[in-house]
C-alpha cells in the first residue's frame, strides 16, 4: 500500500486560532475514509487544507506523487452562481480543466465521457438544461458527474449528502463505491453514523485534536464520541500561545 497523504504535526486555523491542532497520520491510497466530529471540529478545514485552498499555519501535508491541484474537491456549500446561463453539459465538462486547459478541445470520446458521467449520476436528458432549472439534489448529482471527469487519485467530499433524498443518496453512494473499486482515495465528511458504519471502513474522529483514527467501529465507540463532544467549540479569546513541539 502506498501513502496518498501524510499529515505531519498539522495545525490549521483562522486568525492564529487553531481549528485542527497538531494532527499526525497518514491516508493510504485507495481507502474510504470518513471524517466525523461535532460542529466546529475542523472537518471542513482539514478538507480545505488537503485541497490546497487553505495554507497550514503549522506542520505540513505531504502528497504522494500528485499536487493539490490534482485533488478533486466538493466543498460543503459550493459558491456557484446558479443564475449563470450555462448548460449542465458545459458545467460538467469543466471537470476536464486539468487536461483541456485554456484551449484543449473536447473531442468525440471526451464528449461521450461527459454523457456517460451525466448518465451515471442519473441526469440523462438534462444535458441542455441550464443549471438554474436544477433542484438541489439534481445540482449535487451534477457536481458528482463533474468530479467523475476530474479523474483524480484523491476525492474530497464535504457533507455531500446533506438535504438529499434516499434515492439520490444511493445513486451517489454507488459512485463512491465505484471510485473505491478504481483504487481512488475518498475522504468524506459525514454526520450520519449509520451510513459511515455501513460504507466507510475507516474513520477519523476529529474534535480539533485527533480523538480516534482507526477502523470505523472502534473509532465511533461511545467513549470516543463522548470525548469528542466534550471538547469545546468556541475560540478562547484569551488563549495563550501554543508551545507544544512536535
Amino acid at each position: 500500500m502506498t501513502t496518498a497523504l501524510r499529515f505531519r504535526d498539522l495545525t490549521l486555523g483562522y486568525d492564529r486560532h487553531p481549528a485542527v491542532h497538531h494532527l499526525d497520520g497518514e491516508v493510504e491510497q485507495g481507502v474510504l475514509l470518513a471524517v466525523c466530529g461535532p460542529n466546529g471540529a475542523g472537518k471542513s478545514t482539514l478538507l480545505k487544507a488537503i485541497a490546497g485552498v487553505l495554507k497550514p499555519i503549522g506542520g505540513k501535508i505531504e502528497r504522494g506523487g500528485f499536487s493539490a491541484r490534482d485533488i478533486a474537491y466538493l466543498p460543503q456549500a459550493a459558491e456557484i452562481d446558479r443564475s449563470f446561463p450555462i448548460s449542465v453539459f458545459d458545467m460538467v465538462s469543466m471537470g476536464y480543466w486539468r487536461t483541456a486547459g485554456l484551449f484543449g478541445g473536447i473531442g468525440r470520446d471526451k464528449r461521450q465521457k461527459v454523457f456517460d458521467a451525466i448518465a451515471s449520476v442519473g441526469l440523462t436528458g438534462f444535458e441542455d438544461r441550464t443549471i438554474a432549472t436544477l433542484s438541489g439534489g439534481q445540482m449535487q448529482r451534477m457536481l458528482f458527474a463533474r468530479l467523475l471527469l476530474q479523474d483524480s487519485p484523491v476525492i474530497l467530499l464535504d457533507e455531500p449528502f446533506t438535504a438529499i433524498d434516499a434515492k439520490t443518496m444511493q445513486d451517489l453512494l454507488n459512485v463512491v463505491e465505484r471510485w473505491h473499486n478504481e483504487k481512488r482515495t475518498v475522504i468524506a465528511v459525514l454526520h450520519d453514523f449509520e451510513m459511515v458504519r455501513g460504507h466507510f471502513p475507516q474513520t477519523l474522529l476529529l474534535a480539533r485534536e485527533k480523538v480516534a483514527w482507526c477502523g470505523t467501529s472502534d473509532a465511533l465507540s461511545p467513549e470516543n464520541l463522548l470525548k469528542a463532544r466534550r471538547i469545546c467549540e468556541a475560540f478562547d479569546r484569551e488563549a495563550l500561545e501554543c508551545e507544544r513541539v512536535a
Binding site: R69, E79, I80, D81, M94, R146
Partner: peptide, 22 residues
C-alpha cells in the same frame, strides 16, 4: 479568446477554479 474558460469558471464557480488551478 485566451481567458474565456477561466473567466467563465471564475464567474460561475470560483471555488472550483481555485481548487484546480491558480
Amino acid at each position: 479568446a485566451l481567458l474565456y474558460r477561466p473567466l467563465v469558471m471564475e464567474t460561475l464557480d470560483p471555488g472550483f477554479l481555485a481548487s484546480v488551478s491558480g
